[in-house]
């Protein structure tokens, strides 16, 4: 089109191969990243029947596990573990707190079941007065660095409860509060019976 009287345009060259390779790697990397993010967003919750990675809960003083000031999931192999996420600012948590405590009372003596309260994004003074209000006696500790909640559910809301069997396999997920003691027991008892 335009006449170029003096300027000789550069010789026509395509994109060098190494640039092409870089571009495609970058593009596919980005798409891979999005795909991974999307998968995580689509399945935010840990799947039932998958093995739970190990984690440690530091415990509030007065709410220790057999006098230990922190408890590791792997130490609890052979026991059914109920992990309950709660917070003092969460209203629905209050509806299940008493039921959880009663359920705990029913298992405490035999020692085959461990309840772990994990206090999610909460402040200690408020958490303590909550636990006192509901006479909670099972081990409780803060979700330090929100690490534990991120293992179970990327978009955790409270309350949520995860029940893990003797082999460390996740067996049951409860989103929202339990409605009764019987409801909790109906999940745990079959696991104790080895089913």
């Amino acid at each position: 089109m335009t006449q170029e009287p003096t300027n000789v345009a550069a010789p026509k060259r395509g994109v060098p191969l190494w640039v092409q390779i870089l571009v495609w790697i970058g593009l596919l990397g980005l798409l891979g990243l999005l795909a991974a993010g999307l998968l995580k967003a689509k399945n935010p919750i840990m799947a039932v029947r998958s093995s739970v990675p190990d984690f440690t809960v530091p415990l509030f003083s007065g709410y220790e596990y057999n006098t230990a000031s922190e408890v590791k999931l792997s130490e609890l192999k052979g026991k059914v573990v109920l992990v309950n996420f709660w917070a003092s600012w969460c209203q629905p948590c209050r509806t299940e707190a008493a039921d959880l405590e009663s359920a705990w009372q029913s298992y405490a003596e035999k020692g085959q079941v461990v309840f772990l309260g994990v206090d999610y994004v909460d402040t200690e003074p408020e958490a303590r007065s909550y636990m006192t209000d509901f006479n909670i006696s099972y081990p409780n500790g803060p979700d330090m660095g929100t690490r534990i909640s991120q293992i179970f559910n990327r978009n955790l809301g409270v309350p949520e409860t995860y029940i893990i069997d003797q082999e460390g396999i996740l067996r049951f997920i409860q989103i929202g509060p339990f409605q009764s003691v019987a409801e909790i027991q109906s999940v745990i008892d079959p696991l104790l019976a080895g089913r």
Partner: peptide
């Protein structure tokens, strides 16, 4: 709201802003 009250309490205890931030990092990530 609770977090803010906690900050207030820690300030009252004489903690420095840096220490308070560190506490929150340790506690909540």
């Amino acid at each position: 709201h609770q977090w803010r009250e906690l900050i207030r309490q820690m300030l009252a205890e004489g903690k420095s802003p840096a220490a308070i931030k560190q506490y929150f990092v340790d506690y909540y990530g």
